[in-house]
């Protein structure tokens, strides 16, 4: 799990199931949790809006590919995170401001590269 102490505030868009698997995510005072039925419901606009609202870091928390109850939530979320990172790169922000982490059934999380495609 990436550290949430090195930025003033962090906004987490989390699938309810993934959040259930990783309850510690909400323990940091500077963390705002936004629950989603599935992380696949995220769109890049929501991620940019969180940055606009002052989040130093925006994290999307999804279930792993093999444990998503909606089958392809992680894939959909990854595409939106990549788009947000592309747009942030052009705006001049650090693309790493927005990140995706997948949580497996055991509550272990792993970061997804989501490499931006912008030149």
């Amino acid at each position: 799990m990436a550290s949430s102490t090195d930025s003033p505030s962090i906004t987490v868009f989390a699938c309810t199931t993934a959040l259930h698997r990783l309850p510690a995510i909400g323990s940091n005072q500077a963390t705002t949790i936004k629950r989603l039925a599935c992380a696949g419901g995220i769109n890049a606009g929501m991620l940019l809006e969180a940055v606009e609202d002052g989040a130093g870091r925006v994290l999307v928390l999804a279930c792993g590919q093999d444990s998503c109850r909606h089958q392809n939530g992680a894939t959909l979320a990854e595409a939106q995170v990549r788009l947000a990172r592309d747009l942030l790169t052009t705006l001049g922000f650090d693309p790493g401001t927005v990140a995706l982490e997948l949580v497996d059934r055991a509550g272990e999380s792993v970061s997804v590269a989501c490499k931006e495609t912008a030149p």
Binding site: G45, E49, V51, E52, T90, G92, P119
Partner: peptide, 25 residues
């Protein structure tokens, strides 16, 4: 439209402190 994403982008562009990288193409 587009969940307000375009408007968010434009508002972000209205900021004064923006080190844009908009000529990479």
């Amino acid at each position: 439209a587009h969940a307000g994403m375009l408007q968010t982008l434009m508002r972000l562009m209205a900021r004064s402190d923006l080190p844009q990288r908009r000529l990479a193409w």
